[in-house]
């Protein structure tokens, strides 16, 4: 099949950037989207042009490196799927495909389609952990955890930190990410001692990074390649409400 690509090219964080068109013939429907871009890049290198820079690594939907906005949707048209797991059979011969980077104030563009998502790391560093030194752990079965709670924590923990939630959100908000990360730990008995501090610290850091607030559009949930539910945002809101009432906002 043939496709017409319109790709965002931007040389660096301070460059203005623009859409550039490329025509690609001989695309196989069994290719993944990134393999299609690989072919484009191979062509570009042979022509002496700089290839399109995009982040990717595991190519099996788990590392969270990849993430492109394809035809206006983060990770493309297929729901619950990362860019690397999107296959060209989801497109038709002759399709126009628009490829843009994830956008949010807190994600600056490194080059082309690669963005800086270190804000997510800093949010995690602010409180996304349980302070348990190696050596201090009791037996793993010492605290039984109800299956439904463990499963729910796992639902939240499935987050791959790709940034699609913030990219999809009209407000560039990272609420779904922060909610998934804080809820996973706040749901579990091990996470209780630091529960209030955790949610306050993480939300505080999220605000500092310049992410927007939540307007309950639920666009994040729709874009999330791991189908993480917005109910975790509700849970985080509840946790935060209690935490702020008890301990105030100062972290």
């Amino acid at each position: 099949m043939k496709v017409k690509l319109h790709i965002w090219r931007q040389n660096g964080p301070n460059d203005k950037g623009k859409m550039v068109d490329y025509n690609l013939d001989n695309v196989s429907s069994d290719m993944s989207f990134l393999e299609m871009l690989d072919i484009l890049n191979e062509d570009l290198i042979l022509k002496g042009e700089e290839p399109v820079v995009f982040e990717h690594d595991c190519r099996e939907g788990i590392c969270g490196s990849c993430g492109l906005v394809i035809n206006g949707k983060p990770h493309g048209p297929e729901s619950g799927t990362t860019t690397c797991q999107l296959h060209m059979r989801k497109f038709k011969d002759g399709d126009d495909i628009f490829v843009e980077p994830f956008r949010s104030k807190a994600f600056s563009i490194v080059k082309d389609l690669m963005v800086d998502r270190s804000a997510y790391d800093r949010i995690q560093q602010s409180g996304g952990f349980i302070s348990a030194n190696v050596g201090s752990a009791p037996d793993a079965n010492a605290i039984p955890i109800a299956k439904n709670i463990a499963d729910l924590a796992m639902d939240a923990a499935a987050c791959i930190g790709c940034g699609a939630c913030a990219a999809a959100c009209p407000n560039g908000s990272a609420m779904l990410f922060v909610a998934a990360k804080s809820s996973q730990l706040n749901l579990l008995p091990q996470g209780q001692p630091e529960k209030n501090k955790r949610v306050r610290a993480m939300i505080n850091q999220m605000e500092k990074e310049g992410f927007g607030g939540c307007s309950n559009y639920y666009e994040c949930e729709a874009a999330c390649p791991k189908n993480i539910s917005v109910r975790f945002i509700a849970k985080m809101n509840r946790d935060y409400f209690v935490a702020v009432v008890k301990e105030g906002t100062k972290v």
Binding site: I130, A132, A140, N141, D151
Partner: peptide
């Protein structure tokens, strides 16, 4: 065995049975 203990204490959500055990 210690690895499992450590990971659980960090909040790794291993699969559990209905009784709440791993």
């Amino acid at each position: 065995a210690n690895i499992i203990d450590q990971s659980v204490s960090q909040g790794v959500p291993f699969a559990r049975e209905y009784g709440g055990y791993l």
